[in-house]
Design a protein around this nucleic acid. Structure first.
Length: 582
RNA sequence: CGGGGCGUAGCACAGCCUGGUAGUGCGCUCGGUUUGGGACCGAGAGGUCGGAGGUUCGAAUCCUCUCGCCCCGACCA
């Protein structure tokens, strides 16, 4: 491409709306323009990068036996009603009606559609396994689109689905995808990790999340340097030292605590208790199978609740903290004086079925202090099992940096920020059962197909690549996904000799199979250098005064080092560099 | 959905409080000088001040409504 005619609208100043680095650089380097919140147009440079990413996705999917499809983005509601997700999914789905007033939606993922093909066409175990994938647009009405291409409402996803006869087959398919994902992210030049994560409303047993470490990310990952344990905070556990309790009291004892509202307050209150001897009581309203269920979550006073863990433990699609009025109606006291003792009975009087869920760290604890469900009063000497009898026990606690690794003896956990770039799920038979996708086994039995689903966000890869590869001057693309391999910069286009040298070199590079860009603009050299740095092309060949001596300057974007190379050798040199690993 | 902020030229912003000719820098066009890290001089083009309604002799400016965008929180497959 000739830069003089190519559309690369670079910006000198940072756009006011951009906050994170990748967003600023995507705009400044002329890759994207915004159309609406979470909706962006991809300009030619971005499209080139996206196509390179997609090519890697295709190659690695094909390598593990994937077959590429292209499914509709517009879906009739019926198919989503069959799986139950038309109701299960809330406002995140873009819904619309057609002219006949029929419910439709824009696809946010394609389990239902792929499953509908599978159930109609797959009949026999002999046809399995199948590995199907597509690269296609997805629509999600995110509550808060943000950070450029990080959280979008319309984005490109590579989604793959596997269909197996049994669990063993799924294990193999899952492992294949996992390996493919490792190769994909490695080839894209990303620093990534595989972590345990919540499956959310996807359902299924096991899921692995692929994350790229970056401060711009929204996920928190706990890792152990000693044994390699890694988990999203929504799933991570840790070992915390147990607290030795005294014998406690034969029954809880109420005492007045005027003005005490928080765990902290009670630690300093005369006759109070240290935080690890208190029970934190949080009232939530969970949405379970479209029903509102009040829940009292109990944790150790010095521990933090993780809401995703709570939702997962309850099988809820959504949890929110109860409003102050709801809390008072339910338990007869305000937040700050709440507790599990007698809570179920108190709620019953108000005609509510209160569900009590307690964190595992409260197991076997006695002599605890907690609210009395009476303003300005607490109870001491509470024995959790004896006095509260939770309906269930679950891991509800957020782990923190410095806590002991749950897997190994020596390690401690470190928590860092990351962004999700891919997620793979063992779905099992959730969709095949609800939608009737079955095959006949060798002995003639009809069994539901065992499925897996695997997603990668194309824009997330691009965003992560920039977040992890940039400097003060701009983007530093990994060679594998750079929009061009090399840019030929003619310092003065009005100089006949320089121009002709540049033109020839440009054509030779192309002939050698390289993606080359010729900067033939009538601009000062400085402007061209700045733009080339900003856009982040891995190599720049500067055609300047040294041409008289038969030399061009080879500049490496990443290291900002340059070297003079003989004109006759430069093409093979660049070819070697461009094809070399990252 | 709760809290905060912002919509004025392609971009970044000033002007608004205290109503009276719509400005600055970058970019763009033309001419000239320059030419290896975002040049300089000169001359230009470019704006229904997000939209609607109201107050007023007069509204970018004051009032009401509305649309949009950004950030924090909540949420998130």
């Amino acid at each position: 491409m000739r830069w003089s005619q190519y559309f690369i609208p670079t910006l000198r100043q940072d756009p006011a709306d951009a906050e994170v680095v990748s967003h600023k650089l995507l705009l400044r380097a002329g890759l994207i323009r915004q159309l609406g919140a979470g909706i962006y147009s991809y300009l030619p440079i971005a499209q080139r990068v996206a196509l390179k990413v997609m090519q890697i996705l295709r190659e690695e999917m094909n390598r593990v036996g994937g077959q590429e499809f292209y499914l509709p983005a517009l879906h009739p509601a019926e198919i989503w009603k069959e799986s139950g997700r038309w109701e299960a999914i809330g406002a995140d789905m873009f819904r619309l009606r057609d002219r006949k007033d029929a419910d439709m939606c824009l696809g946010m993922t394609h389990e239902e559609i792929f499953t509908s093909i599978a159930r109609n066409e797959l009949r026999s175990y002999k046809q399995l396994p199948q590995v199907w994938y597509q690269i296609q647009v997805k629509f999600r009405d995110e509550p808060r689109p943000k950070s450029g291409l990080m959280r979008l409402r319309t984005f490109i996803m590579k989604d793959a689905y596997t269909f197996d006869l049994d669990a063993a087959g799924l294990d193999k398919s899952f492992a294949d995808q996992r390996e493919a994902y490792k190769r994909i992210f490695t080839r894209c030049g990303l620093n990534f990790a595989i972590v345990e994560a919540s499956s959310g409303s996807m359902g299924g047993s096991t899921s692995n999340e692929f994350v790229a470490k970056t401060d711009a990310g929204e996920d928190l990952i706990a890792t152990c340097a000693n044994c390699g344990y890694a988990a999203n905070l929504e799933k991570a556990t840790s070992r915390v030292p147990t607290v030795a309790d005294d014998n406690g009291l034969s029954s809880p004892e109420e005492f007045p605590t005027p003005g005490v509202r928080t765990i902290e307050d009670l630690t300093t209150f005369p006759g109070g208790a240290t935080a690890d001897r208190q029970v934190k009581s949080l009232v939530y309203v969970a949405t379970i199978k479209n029903e509102q269920q009040p829940v009292l979550a109990l944790l150790r006073g010095d521990h933090q609740l993780h809401e995703t863990k709570l939702a997962d433990s309850l099988g809820a699609t959504f949890v929110r903290t109860a409003h102050p009025e709801e809390i008072r109606e339910l338990l007869g006291a305000g937040a700050g004086s709440l507790g599990g003792v007698g809570a179920r009975v108190r709620a019953k009087e108000a005609n509510f079925q209160l569900y009590l869920i307690a964190d595992l760290a409260l197991r076997d604890r006695r002599g605890m202090t907690t609210g009395a469900n009476k303003d300005d009063h607490h109870l001491r000497g509470v024995d959790i099992e004896r006095d509260i009898q939770p309906d269930t026990w679950a891991d509800l606690r957020s782990v923190a940096s410095g806590e002991n690794c749950p897997r190994c003896d020596q390690g401690t956990l470190e928590v860092y920020k990351a962004m999700e770039i891919g997620h793979i799920f063992k779905l099992g038979t959730k969709y095949s059962e609800s939608m009737g996708a079955t095959v006949l086994t060798q002995d003639g039995k009809e069994v539901p197909i065992v499925m897996g689903s695997y997603g990668i966000g194309v824009e997330r890869i691009i965003t992560a690549a920039i977040e992890q590869n940039h400097d003060a001057d701009g983007i530093i693309w990994p060679k594998t996904i750079a929009p061009f391999d090399v840019v030929v910069t003619v310092t003065n286009i009005k100089d006949e000799q320089l121009r002709e040298t540049g033109e020839k070199l440009y054509k030779d590079l192309q002939r050698a199979g390289l993606d080359a860009l010729l900067d033939d603009r009538d601009e000062r050299a400085g402007v061209k250098f700045k733009d080339a740095d900003l856009i982040g092309i891995p190599y720049r060949l500067t055609i300047g005064k040294k041409v008289a001596d038969g030399l061009v300057e080879l500049f490496e974007r990443r290291t900002k080092t340059s070297e003079d190379v003989k004109l006759g050798e430069i093409v093979s040199r660049v070819q070697k560099l461009a094809l070399a690993g990252l």
